[in-house]
Nucleic acid binder design. Structure first.
Length: 583
RNA sequence: CGGGGUGUGGCUCAGCUUGGUAGAGCGCUCGGUUCGGGACUGAGAGGUCGGCGGUUCAAAUCCGCCCACCCCGACCA
């Protein structure tokens, strides 16, 4: 491709809309343009990257025996109604002219299960793994970071159908390998962590996290044993502190007019948040429960739900809180709280003489102690893990890291197949529901995640596997016959060798070409400048400062060699990732 | 949904406090000089000042309502 024919509107200044590094660079480099909140155009450079990622995805998925299909972006409401997901609030919903309801597909478990239940009858047709690469629509509460979290985004979604749980484990294993190799080949170092399954459902699931300070997710990681989990999911080790023998002081109910929040109460009483216990009133189905966590901690709702063996819990409304506690919101406490189960975070067991709400408006209890004043129904791991918490697997301490979620894989079991009546006839003559798994990679998110990790002050540094072009030839002075001849010859030879090469022969000053080349981040740069008259060109890797001066007739061979070694390094990473990380 | 912020030529921003009919840099067009890290110079083109309404002789500027976008949080794959 000749740069004069390529539409890549680069920007000298950073558009005000961008905050994240990758977002700024993708806009400045002319890879993407915003259409609306969370809605983007992929311009030629950006779409080239997308296509390269997609092709790596296809190679690795096909290698594991998965088959590519394409499902519709438009999904009739009935399918999502079959599993109850029509009520998910991320769905973009609308009606056709005859009032039938549809949504834009936000993930395709129902659609693919419908395909399989119609046409797969026998265990002989299993295993089956179908995948697609497609635009998804989700009405995100808050899009951010450009293409990091869009309302329309490109995703790989794969779905496996198996006869048994064990076969599903094998299918999951294959996807683990495919995904690990895909990310590694795209130049991303990901760590695999335990996670929450959210709207997808199922129990066992893992996320592929790309470490980046600007990431949205927090990952907790134990340096001693390697345990890693999303903070949403992370368990906390049960390690009781050596309880200092503190004398129990007499329980006292004191006036705390209008002091509701932890901050207000601590200030009013001159205490620290860790001297308080928060009492959170939750609804779990029809039951109301009280959950206790230390004043400076946050409750993890998923943990509470699991403790209560229910799917979903939600904060009680003001009316319920007043009815149960007899006090206005902000003064709930566990002392004398009858008729509700009290679920306490284990950490509270180590506390003494603490402060809780008084169950009477404008009061708090101080010098509260366990057993004497409170009857805890259940002890559990309830709080959101944070750095410094004990590791749940060893005696190490958790560290926290920020990350971008690049992919998520799930074992679904039979939740979808049962809900949708998707069954096959097994060898024993019995109808059985398919055992399913689903696997997603954020393809357009990777367009951002990669430059978020691979950049410097001058611009993006694309891994060669996903770069919009592999090689860029900078023809500094197109008017100069020597330079022009050398650049053109090299360009033709590289094209002939199957190299994806960009020739910058624009009528621009050299400085502009250097700046643009660094900004758009093509990994191999070749400069045809004034050394051309001496039969020399310069070759430089975008990732390195120094240029190598070489003879013109070595040019093609040298570039091919560099290209080969860059690709090989990525392949080796993929092998190492798969060999080293599997538990 | 809660909190904060921004909306002025294609881009980045000034002007708003104290009302008087819009400006800079970059980019763009034409000419000249330049040509190895975003050149210099001369001449140009280009703006319903987010929208609607109000106050006023007069509104980018003051007031009200609305919209859009960004950031933090909630939520989320």
């Amino acid at each position: 491709m000749r740069a004069s024919q390529l539409f890549f509107p680069t920007l000298r200044e950073v558009p005000a809309e961008a905050e994240m590094t990758s977002h700024k660079l993708l806009l400045r480099g002319g890879f993407i343009r915003r259409v609306g909140a969370g809605i983007y155009n992929y311009l030629p450079l950006g779409y080239r990257v997308i296509k390269k990622i997609e092709n790596i995805v296809r190679e690795e998925m096909d290698a594991q025996g998965a088959q590519e299909i394409l499902m519709p972006g438009l999904v009739p409401a009935e399918l999502y109604r079959e599993t109850g997901r029509w009520d998910e609030d991320v769905l973009f919903k609308f009606k056709d002219r005859t009032d039938r309801e549809y949504s834009i597909g936000f993930t395709h478990e129902e659609v693919v299960t419908d395909i399989v239940r119609r046409d797969v009858r026998s265990y002989r047709e299993l295993p089956l793994n179908l995948y697609q690469i497609q635009s998804k629509g989700r009405d995100e509460p808050r899009p951010r970071g450009g293409v990091v979290r869009g309302r329309e985004f490109i995703m790989l979604d794969a779905y496996s159908f198996d006869r048994t749980k064990e076969d599903c484990d094998l299918a999951y294993e294959k996807m683990w390998i495919a995904f690990s190799r895909i990310l590694a080949r795209c130049g991303l170092d990901a760590i695999v962590v335990e996670a929450e399954s959210g709207a997808i459902g199922g129990k066992e699931n893992e996320e592929y996290m790309v470490l980046a300070d600007s990431g949205e997710d927090v990952v907790l990681h134990c340096p001693s044993c390697g345990y890693a989990a999303n903070a949403e999911r992370c368990e906390i080790g049960d390690r009781p502190a050596a309880k200092p023998s503190v004398e129990m002081r007499p329980l006292e109910l004191i006036d705390t007019p209008n002091q509701r929040t932890i901050e207000e109460v601590t200030q009013f009483l001159g205490k620290k948040p860790e001297d308080l216990v928060k009492t959170l009133i939750y609804k779990a189905g029809n039951e109301v429960v009280a959950a206790l966590v230390r004043g400076d901690r946050d409750l993890n709702e998923a943990k509470l739900a699991r403790t209560l063996e229910t799917k979903h819990v939600e904060m009680a409304d003001a009316e319920t809180i007043e009815r149960v506690t007899g006090a206005a919101v902000g003064f709930a406490g566990p002392v004398g709280l009858d008729g509700v189960r009290i679920i306490a975070d284990r950490e509270i067991a180590d506390m003494a003489n603490f402060v809780v709400g008084g169950n009477k408006t404008d009061t708090h209890f101080v010098n509260v102690n366990l057993d004497r004043d409170i009857k805890v129904t259940t002890w559990a791991d309830l709080r959101i893990a944070s750095a410094g918490d004990p590791c749940p697997r060893c005696d190490g301490t958790l560290e926290s890291l920020r990350a971008i979620e690049a992919a998520h894989i799930f074992k679904l079991g039979t939740i979808y197949s049962e809900a949708m009546g998707a069954t096959f006839l097994d060898a024993d003559g019995q109808e059985k529901p398919f055992v399913m798994g689903c696997y997603g990679i954020g393809v357009s998110r990777m367009l951002a995640a990669i430059p978020e990790v691979h950049n410097d002050a001058d611009g993006i540094i694309w891994p060669i596997s996903v770069a919009p072009f592999e090689v860029e030839i900078l023809l500094l002075n197109p008017e100069d016959n020597d330079q022009c001849a050398v650049a053109t010859l090299l360009y033709e030879e590289l094209l002939g060798s199957g190299v994806d090469v960009l020739l910058d022969e624009r009528d621009e000053r050299p400085g502009v070409k250097f700046k643009d080349a660094d900004l758009i981040g093509i990994p191999i740069q070749v400069v045809c400048g004034r050394l051309a008259s001496e039969g020399k060109i310069e070759v430089r890797l975008r990732s390195e400062k120094d240029k190598q001066v070489i003879a013109i007739d070595e040019g093609t061979a040298r570039v091919l060699e560099l290209r080969r070694s860059l690709f090989q390094a990525l392949e080796e990473k993929a092998d190492v990732f798969c060999a080293g990380r599997r538990k």
